[in-house]
Design a protein around this nucleic acid. Structure first.
Lengths: 119, 119
DNA sequence: GAGCTAGTACGGTAGGCATCGTAGTACGGC
DNA sequence: GCCGTACTACGATGCCTACCGTACTAGCTC
């Protein structure tokens, strides 16, 4: 069944730039798992499959976190074959909240180096 | 009971600078009520009584939000007579996460002006 | 001390969310 | 067509939290 075309069935909803809420972004970033995802995506600087980000949780939990990030407007996602590529919405976030993403990423890095002095 | 001196009984616990966690700060800021508190404190730029920040919730809920902010290291609080003065921990936050507080405050301002064009 | 003001502590409630496992769907390769 | 891979959807669970009202404490003023 599913008379809708197979491709359109796999289109993911994203909030438009104007609908991105600061509170939602902060909440999305306040979870350690999700912050790790964002850090990894920022380091890679390109859209990658979910499985590239190695999380210490089950796959279903991982899916949940990616969904929260997408619905908050922090990342965009699109299907490509069996994989789902995720990438930061840097342009939108920088336009809406200039400096926010960078300061969060820098803070996360410095905090980690504080906790792991010798790497 | 209550052999402890009256003054020491009213000392509030704050996390030291090194113990402030980025995730906790982001979580504290991700609540609309608490973001409003922080914005008000930033505008006033001095320690003020809890009652100065006018929130649309009960007193006990207000106390709860101030406590979350204090325990996350976002604000400091001290008793002064019947009042409890609260102020931003700007120095600590700027030292740990440079630019974070400013970008959050700027983002909150621009988001509000987007929602209320004619204010 | 009496009364006022400012805030706290406590108990309860309802909803949210991080987590899991299991079952299922979409796609690519053989 | 069949199987493996990648991800999703669903339901369950247990914790966390935003919120409230009530009863209480600390300090100020008279």
């Amino acid at each position: 069944m599913s008379s809708q075309t197979a491709s359109s069935a796999r289109v993911l909803e994203h909030p438009p730039r104007e609908a991105i809420q600061l509170e939602a972004v902060l909440h999305a970033l306040s979870d350690p798992m999700r912050l790790q995802i964002v850090r990894t995506l920022a380091d890679l600087d390109e859209a990658v499959a979910c499985s590239v980000v190695d999380l210490a949780v089950s796959k279903s939990t991982s899916t949940h976190h990616f969904r929260v990030l997408r619905e908050a407007g922090v990342i965009h996602q699109c299907y490509q074959g069996t994989a789902k590529l995720s990438g930061l919405r840097r342009d939108d976030l920088d336009a809406l909240f200039p400096g926010l993403l960078d300061s969060v990423l820098a803070g996360a890095r410095s905090q980690q180096s504080r906790r792991e002095p010798a790497g």
